[in-house]
Design a protein around this nucleic acid. Structure first.
Lengths: 136, 136
DNA sequence: TGTAATCCCTAGTAAGTTGATAGGATTAAT
DNA sequence: ATTAATCCTATCAACTTACTAGGGATTACA
């Protein structure tokens, strides 16, 4: 299941991407429009800023803005920051790999075989979709 | 993330599918061989029996056995029983659909659009893979 | 008929995660 | 100065997960 955090984060990014004005977009505005608890959204946007997706401006008339082209923000990258691993088991994760305790040889594990396929297909979708696609 | 429950369930099904003897396979044997806590595995196999994947024989020399051809046991079906919805958000789930609180029109939701694609690709993999593929 | 082996069933529980909320510090425009 | 915004830390209730405990019911076999 996708966490609310990720869902809210994606919606907020989409909202910012769609705003055509040059002015930074305020958390309060996004929260109200997308029905997201404001304080929760604050922490999410902070994460997105710290991981290089957003820039921010403090103080009055402050807010958040994109610092990359929408076409350069891949869903794989966003998901990994907000949700963590994309793979369904750590032993098939590219970025968060961990060995299983119970498998002697993971190449003989039926679950491993299956989850590799799921991962590859999911990755393909998430790599092909950028924020441009979400906002478009 | 795939739960241990599902992972253990899949491993157990694979183990049973691979056992060539006609005799039912015992929980203790699977647990030992696959390094799964026995009591936990008991409850998982019980679930699989109640949902029609396994039959069981009680008493001495009892155990579990498949009641369908391995080629007829689709991963979608197993996953739905052990893990629940395959979709990452309820609003794109075929079998566990729920409307989002925060979306007025889900066809305009960027997350919805993306997750439909993920779901379709995952479903394809899970439908194409049967227990025969896992055990083979 | 007794006993050991096996599945069946219900309850409980510690640890971790999620989805927030609270309260304020800091910064910038007016 | 005042106001409006981001920034930061701490806290917390509810839920989920991954078990564990304790036994009941059933069957094979001596």
């Amino acid at each position: 299941m996708l966490s609310k955090k990720t869902k809210y984060g994606l919606k907020a990014l989409t909202y910012i991407a769609k705003s055509d004005s040059d002015a930074p977009v305020q958390v309060g505005e996004i929260a109200k429009s997308e029905k997201i608890p404001q304080k929760f959204l604050e922490s999410i946007l902070l994460t997105l800023r710290k991981s290089g997706f957003l820039g921010s401006k403090k103080g009055k008339h402050g807010g958040y803005y994109l610092i990359k082209e929408t076409s350069e923000i891949k869903m794989t990258d966003v998901l990994r920051v907000l949700e963590g691993p994309i793979a369904m088991v750590p032993c098939v994760s590219l970025n968060f790999y961990e060995k299983c305790d119970d498998c002697l040889d993971e190449h003989e594990c039926s679950v491993h075989k299956l989850m590799i396929q799921v991962r590859d297909n999911t990755l393909k979708v998430l790599r092909d979709n950028t924020l441009e696609d979400l906002a478009g």
